[in-house]
Design a protein around this nucleic acid. Structure first.
Lengths: 111, 111
DNA sequence: ATTATTTATCGTATCTTTGCGATGAATTTT
DNA sequence: AAAATTCATCGCAAAGATACGATAAATAAT
């Protein structure tokens, strides 16, 4: 036990990763990225799961800060939360790119 | 229900994201990336959790294909699985970069 | 031979996730 | 006013994740 806790960056990255750790939520994010119109109902039609389950996944993405919803009754317009998304993008970039994705380097198990 | 299933790429990306969805596992990957020597015991000293729990996290990373272990009794040498890691890197790049991280574009909720 | 070291696995407890149908809230349409 | 639309939430069940200590397995050291 070298450290009592994980760093904030590590916690945040893990949180984003966890939010993306389900195919339904990946699909939702991809869908939201492709349109300017993004109502909840449209998302449901893209997914092989019940409406209530979609709503839960949307809630998780919202709780993770990756999307936001704007009520336009009776519909709800969802979209990517740019600020947090860009931060997630940056954290993943740091993680993969700078730290691990140096393709020129040899891995520790490669001789 | 437009489609019965998710695409393989989507499933794979979600699987990688899920594996990274815990601060202990993020810490492990960062640690492995920084050294050429990477024995199991060293990893445990970096984490604020019990040995058996670390072993479980290592197993999950291994199951997801992100790392691999080589027995050098009595120790076990762990390292990043380059092939799969690079693929994960690419999938995340596509997801963030091409699809969502176009910072010049306006989001659908930004006026 | 016995003991120590290192790691995986087992058993267990608790919490979280994933999923569904049913219901409720807030409108809009008829 | 009544019915339909849209979405969130509740209640529930099943499965998975997270954590721990104890134990096993496989060697190395004494």
């Amino acid at each position: 036990m070298a450290q009592k806790d994980y760093s904030i960056k590590t916690e945040t990255l893990a949180r984003f990763a966890k939010a993306l750790g389900h195919p339904a939520r990946i699909t939702i994010m991809k869908y939201l990225a492709q349109r300017t119109e993004c109502y909840c109902g449209d998302i449901q039609e893209e997914l092989p799961i019940a409406q209530s389950t979609v709503s839960q996944h949307l809630k998780e993405l919202k709780d993770a800060g990756l999307i936001q919803g704007e009520i336009q009754t009776p519909k709800v317009r969802y979209c990517i939360n740019r600020e947090n998304w860009d931060y997630a993008c940056q954290l993943f970039d740091d993680f993969f790119g700078t730290q691990l994705c140096n393709k020129g380097d040899k891995g520790c198990c490669e001789s």
